[in-house]
Design a protein around this nucleic acid. Structure first.
Lengths: 205, 205
DNA sequence: ACGTTGATGATACGGCTGTACCATGACGGT
DNA sequence: ACCGTCATGGTACAGCCGTATCATCAACGT
């Protein structure tokens, strides 16, 4: 046989090509030929590793979500050795804002998928709304933990605040994406709200 | 000539057909033939009143935005004769949540347009990000007005709160759209945050 | 009365898209 | 050494989409 290729790696390369071209020209406009050209392979190859366009799109979504998860995790790690709950939440929320080109692409393509999922059953069945749910639980737990350590102002409902923060973050992200707001001002708004949830700076280390 | 038809009315009918089919099958999937069939006219007619698909899409967007504006205005009016700032803001925010089928369609199609606008120059040039800006100014003014009447809690920055509320509202709307959250819980979250901004109920009448 | 013009219909065309089919090197096992 | 199989290329096909063309009917101005 020829150089027995690592299928998973090849699929990843193609999926990344898909995301790149989708970020540049919009998800609705990507064809298999575009993906092939972007990945530097022939159309036949894309067909070979993904039999159908639908499977390619599904895999692209999974890859996108996984990459985003890693991004956020890395950002949280770089927030320090033992960060307080506030620093952790702040890192999570800021990591999901479309600041640099990579996260801009992520936001755009991910939103495109979300919009598609409303009218496409195959995408709707995909568990890519599991991610937000996990995020909500994580933020809720962090807020609860802060609450028990007396780091929050009184009268704070952890779950409601978590939902609000994530919804705000998503809404601000979209605003940045369409050019209505700058990343800096969005970050400032988020920080302002964190200030209203946490006592002083919310730092315990 | 034949029954000298009212062009603007005809264009409106066709645009509404466009929005309906876009709400059902997704904006990316609508073709001129679908619009024609939905409107009950021939393909040629759609071409006649809008020369090109791009013009049809642009007009559809304007129509959508105008309809949404009317919806919100009606909701605010029905909030009472002389509602307080809080009731007004509440009406505005709740009106933009996708509760019934009509507002669901609006949200979906409008978001589709927003996503398209990121990669399509013709749509990006369209002033449909003017609407959110106006909403931000309106809410800011209402909050300021409430602040001057001592209806708000201390330490409230009108503009920041307006931005937050609108971003939250948008984010919650998307959550509802993709089935992550119920309209009721979203409304509850919004109300919770209004409670944190306004003293007691914020009613001055 | 009639020609001009607005409104509508039917249909054809070129391009693009996803998919399928056929071909052909390149290696590994035996 | 050879055969099967993995990997890859090239290309054809059917369908759809936006647009353009040709044709027709109906009414208004003069």
């Amino acid at each position: 046989m020829p150089k027995r290729v690592d299928h998973e790696e090849r699929r990843t390369e193609i999926a990344e090509a898909l995301v790149r071209v989708a970020g540049r020209r919009g998800l609705h406009a990507v064809g298999m030929r575009d993906v092939a050209a972007e990945a530097g392979v022939s159309l036949r190859l894309v067909q070979y590793y993904f039999q159908t366009k639908e499977k390619l799109l599904l895999y692209g979504l999974q890859h996108l979500a996984a990459g985003f998860g890693e991004r956020v995790a890395a950002r949280v790690r770089s927030a320090g050795e033992n960060p307080g709950p506030r620093a952790m939440i702040e890192a999570m929320l800021l990591a999901s804002l479309p600041t640099d080109e990579e996260s801009r692409t992520f936001h755009l393509v991910y939103t495109s998928y979300a919009v598609l999922a409303v009218t496409d059953d195959a995408l709707a069945a995909q568990p890519f709304m599991k991610n937000p749910e996990a995020a909500e639980d994580a933020v809720t737990a962090l807020l609860q933990q802060a609450h028990e350590a007396d780091l929050t102002r009184p009268g704070i409902d952890s779950r409601v605040e978590a939902i609000s923060l994530l919804a705000m973050s998503a809404g601000l992200g979209t605003s940045i994406l369409v050019g209505q707001r700058s990343p800096e001002s969005a970050a400032a708004v988020l920080n302002h709200h964190l200030d209203r949830i946490f006592q002083d700076g919310g730092r315990d280390d």
